[in-house]
Simulated assay, not measured.
Amino acid sequence: MHIWLALAIAIAAEVVATTALKASEGFTRSLPSLVVVLGYGCAFFFLAQALRGIPVGVAYAVWSGAGIVLVSLIAWIFLGQRLDMAAVFGILLILAGVTVIQLFSKASAH
């Protein structure tokens, strides 16, 4: 499996799990709680696969940065979470940081 595909799957699984975490209502609802556990398990499995070829610092920066951006977008669009300008600016900085790593870092496995 391509290492960047593994990282993309890890990110998607983490986003699904984190979104379901809200719906689990503190692990009091069974189905969302199961999605959380399976999602995080899948996320860590594929993150471990990605670490076979991507330095841990780079992989974690991309994984967490992309997760923050995607979860924030989902919360805004589907859960009605309001983001003020400081939050939007901070999220844009995270996105910019991940982009810089991908485009310019020699530490990133291309």
Rank of each mutant, 00 (worst) to 15 (best):
M1I: 05
H2D: 15
H2Q: 14
I3F: 10
I3N: 10
W4I: 06
W4D: 09
L5R: 04
L5Q: 09
A6T: 03
L7M: 05
A8W: 05
I9V: 15
I9M: 13
I9F: 15
A10E: 06
A10V: 03
I11F: 11
I11E: 10
I11T: 08
A12I: 12
A13I: 03
V16S: 06
V16K: 08
V16A: 14
T18P: 07
T18C: 13
T18N: 15
T19V: 08
T19P: 02
T19Y: 14
T19S: 15
A20Q: 00
L21F: 11
A23C: 03
A23G: 01
S24D: 06
S24I: 00
S24Q: 08
E25F: 00
E25A: 15
E25I: 02
G26N: 05
G26L: 07
G26C: 05
T28D: 01
T28H: 04
R29M: 03
S30D: 12
S30F: 13
S30R: 14
P32T: 07
S33Q: 07
S33T: 12
L34F: 11
L34C: 09
V35W: 12
V36L: 09
V37L: 15
L38V: 13
G39Y: 05
Y40T: 10
Y40C: 09
G41F: 04
C42E: 06
A43M: 04
A43V: 03
A43W: 00
F44L: 11
F45G: 06
A48H: 06
A50E: 05
L51R: 05
L51N: 09
L51K: 05
R52P: 01
R52F: 07
R52T: 08
R52C: 00
R52E: 11
G53A: 09
I54M: 13
I54W: 11
G57M: 04
G57K: 03
G57E: 06
V58T: 09
V58A: 08
A59V: 01
A59K: 01
A59R: 00
Y60S: 12
Y60A: 11
A61F: 00
A61R: 02
A61T: 08
V62W: 02
W63K: 00
W63Y: 09
S64G: 10
G65L: 02
A66N: 02
A66L: 10
I68T: 12
V69T: 08
L70M: 13
L70S: 05
L70A: 13
L73E: 01
I74A: 01
W76P: 11
I77N: 07
I77M: 12
F78S: 13
L79M: 10
G80I: 02
Q81F: 06
Q81I: 00
Q81C: 05
Q81E: 14
L83T: 00
L83G: 02
D84I: 03
M85H: 11
A87K: 15
A87W: 15
A87D: 11
F89L: 14
F89I: 10
F89A: 14
L92N: 01
I94T: 08
I94S: 03
I94D: 00
I94M: 05
V98N: 04
V98T: 08
V98A: 10
T99Y: 03
V100N: 07
V100Q: 04
L103P: 11
L103E: 14
F104N: 07
F104S: 14
F104V: 07
F104I: 03
F104T: 13
S105V: 09
S105C: 14
K106D: 10
K106H: 10
S108I: 15
S108T: 15
A109M: 07
H110S: 12
H110P: 02
H110K: 15
